[in-house]
């Protein structure tokens, strides 16, 4: 089965714009439910403003938040698919077009250290590729703002810390970071593997629909306990007080070393933006000419 790189470029372009202007339904539902539960009057007003913001953003195709992020693109490529063209180049071109044609903010600097010059098209994105069974390509775009990203943290715990040590670290990271991270947040937690595995899992946890529990009942119960503890901190919507500091806690795990217990916390703001699409392979290859004449 064949998929032309140009189709991936077009899809990535569209998903960049959709992600930042169209708040996922599960996030909107969670905000609405929170606005009914919230005990602080100011908190309810903030949550109401966030829902209005989402409506206005969708109607007018204005980004929900001016920080349209560094673009994380997750690709799942079916092992029976043959990509015609360079997939990473296609994704990068899609991001550049999405951010330029969609009037999104370009927030990427070429060199983090000495030459912080804007690349002016929000490239390069961060690209993660997985090979999966099947003959489709699934693309998810997660534009991640730095307000919440900067408040994220990794810690190399050791086994004696146990589940309680993990919970304490998550809670402390939220206590320190939440007021700056545009609460109510989605809290992504990654546990296991190595340092980078835990960080990646924490990011991947943000792709789960808000409120979907981990399939493992012990982990699901830990998610519930953490959510209750976080909402007990009193930080509230916008950090101005209240019982809605997080909308969900999502934990993902991976096997780890006998001597290790790495944990990462990736905070996601209430503008928990993501958009996905699927491309199905064609029986025959499509030439570059055919694609560009579409």
């Amino acid at each position: 089965m064949y998929i032309h790189a140009g189709e991936i470029e077009d899809l990535v372009r569209d998903l960049c714009i959709k992600a930042v202007t169209d708040l996922p339904g599960d996030v909107a539902v969670a905000l609405l439910a929170a606005s009914r539960r919230e005990t602080s009057a100011l908190g309810r007003e903030i949550l109401g403003a966030l829902l209005k913001n989402a409506e206005f953003a969708k109607e007018t195709r204005t980004p929900l938040c001016q920080d349209t992020g560094l673009t994380y693109v997750f690709l799942e490529i079916g092992r029976d698919v043959r990509i015609e063209g360079d997939i990473k180049e296609a994704v990068t071109r899609g991001v550049a077009r999405g951010y330029t044609e969609g009037y999104l903010r370009k927030s990427v600097v070429r060199d983090p250290l000495f030459h912080r010059e804007n690349t002016e098209d929000n490239t390069p994105p961060v690209i993660h590729i997985d090979i999966v069974p099947g003959s489709e390509v699934s693309v998810t775009v997660l534009p991640k703002g730095t307000g919440s990203e900067n408040m994220s943290a990794v810690k190399m715990l050791t086994p004696s810390a146990g589940p309680q040590g993990v919970m304490d670290f998550v809670l402390e990271t939220v206590r320190q970071g939440a007021p700056n991270a545009c609460p109510p947040m989605v809290v992504g937690v990654g546990v296991g593997g190595m340092m980078d595995t835990a960080s990646f899992l924490a990011k991947k946890a943000l792709l789960r629909p808000v409120g979907d529990s981990n399939r493992d009942p012990e982990i699901a119960s830990m998610e519930k306990k953490l959510l209750a503890a976080i909402n007990n901190l009193g930080i509230g919507p916008g950090g101005f007080g209240g019982i809605t500091t997080a909308l969900a806690v999502h934990i993902e795990t991976y096997p780890t070393h006998i001597g290790a217990l790495p944990v990462a916390v990736n905070l996601q703001c209430h503008a928990a933006r993501r958009a996905s699409g699927i491309l199905r392979g064609a029986e025959r290859p499509c030439s570059q000419n055919q694609h560009s004449s579409r």
Binding site: R61, T62, P63, C65, D67, T68, L104, G147, N150
Partner: peptide, 21 residues
């Protein structure tokens, strides 16, 4: 704050606050 660019006919794009710290 740092805005999104304005689409044609608009004064400014999205423009909320950044982290003051």
């Amino acid at each position: 704050a740092g805005p999104c660019p304005p689409p044609p006919g608009r004064v400014i794009g999205s423009l909320g606050p950044t982290t003051s710290g």
